[in-house]
Design a protein around this nucleic acid. Structure first.
Lengths: 253, 253
DNA sequence: CGCTGTGTTGAGGAAGATCAAGCGCCGTGG
DNA sequence: CCACGGCGCTTGATCTTCCTCAACACAGCG
């Protein structure tokens, strides 16, 4: 069972330090995808942002509490996690680099956020000013995308078999990482242990292990260290009943 | 398997007619809970709203399309539904009377909405004007509550057994209906077929039937027609690992 | 009066959980 | 430098939950 380390507020969180954001930063890419041109408009490359590091397994934000600023995930993976009294846990949403960790700046955080790997956060709170409307729209779009992934998650957990859930999750991650420049068409890094995958997919780690073996034997995927390669994307999409997300510019405003 | 009737836009939707909202209307209660005093501030009782009826099983809104106005559920139950190519389906979120059917007025609907019973909708779009800020805040709070229920859903589907899922869902419904004055402490109407419950809980209708029998034999609940009575609430809460929602006035703004 | 939707029951089967053990890797401390 | 311990991965054996298939009863309704 996975243990979450929590030693009071800001445990495991180093003091923040100012950083700049370059052109290939996932956060920058993500903002630009949410609202084309936004990054340039707000002059993201000329600004400095507070960054802080969180170690693996530490809590980033607590359920029901307000989140300070607008944290964005610069590197590493994190998750919304629900813990049960008897030790079971469910990962409810995966955060990948580029994701914002706030859904509504004025309302409390809806779930506990835990770092699944070592993580770097940057605070975008400085992005107020003349373009606040544009930035707020990007935030709203981001929240709707998160919600969409939650809806995908319920369908996956409620009605799909282990192998279908895997296919669906891998395709979702491929598309999300592609969006921020961290995946190619076929492969991407996935720094999750099999136990974390089990907690995401509602399975045991034993069954995750066996399902992955089947998928490799069937030539559906290949694993090399923490890198996944999707070998038969069309077949994965068929079995997962997966449909690619619409491009952002297709979304009516 | 449940069939969804869809015969083009507005199939099964009668032409809208103007109605008034009285003091015990679930929509009014809900708005007042979201933002105490909101209903009076906007003079909800003196206004007229467009209402329309939708028959059971019909689509209310389609995935990915914009929703017109601000539809609220005046009576009947509805749901976010995901359909799979092979006929499986998953109910992702239940709408009960008082619920709003829009999460962000400016973005497309994130899932298909289907009427699970005959339904009456009213359009709150008229509630703009001087108090639009107050109304918008209520909308944002409502969206966060919906999101919270989605998160509960993923935990339920991913990590709980059939009987635990049932206990959790029934407690959630009790609290939500209590909020709009449609439940007492112990019992409430639940107009869902066992097949709809199965699609909500990620089970088969056969297993729903058997689980309900066990719960009745164990003295956990009683069923009378479409009314549920929770007989051992504390035991249900314990087994479901359920925690009551915080009162709205405890939510920091 | 037959049809359809809903609830109920039985028998058998399959997906996934549980329990237990072993292995390799790596960081840490003696 | 080596031993140790924890973690993650793997495998086998067994068990449980839930599914599948099938049949039937019952009520509402055209």
């Amino acid at each position: 069972m996975i243990r979450v380390e929590r030693r009071g507020p800001f445990a495991g969180i180093d003091p923040p330090s100012p950083v700049t954001i370059d052109g290939s930063d996932p956060v920058r890419r993500r903002l630009d995808r949410l609202s084309p041109g936004l990054a340039d408009t707000i002059g993201i490359r000329t600004r400095r942002f507070l960054a802080r590091n969180v170690r693996s397994r530490r809590e980033i934000a607590h359920d029901g509490e307000m989140v300070a600023g607008v944290p964005a995930l610069r590197s590493g993976w994190a998750a919304y996690v629900r813990h049960f009294a008897d030790g079971r846990r469910q990962i409810q949403h995966l955060f990948v680099p580029g994701d914002l960790m706030v859904l509504d700046r004025r309302l409390p955080n809806p779930a506990t956020i835990v770092a699944l790997t070592p993580v770097t956060l940057i605070d975008l709170d400085g992005l107020r000013g003349p373009d606040i409307a544009l930035f707020d729209e990007a935030l709203r779009r981001h929240a709707m995308q998160t919600l969409h992934h939650l809806l995908d998650g319920t369908a996956r957990l409620g009605r799909q078999s282990a192998i279908e859930r895997f296919a669906h999750l891998l395709l979702e991650l491929r598309d999300r990482l592609l969006d921020v420049g961290l995946a190619s068409e076929r492969s991407f890094p996935m720094p999750l242990t099999q136990e974390m995958l089990a907690d995401t997919l509602g399975l045991t780690s034993v069954h995750v292990n066996r399902t992955l073996q089947v998928m490799r034997q069937d030539g559906l995927i290949a694993l090399a260290g923490r890198d996944v390669t999707l070998l038969r994307t069309d077949e994965l999409m068929r079995m997962a009943d997966y449909q690619s997300p619409p491009p952002v510019d297709m979304i009516t405003t």
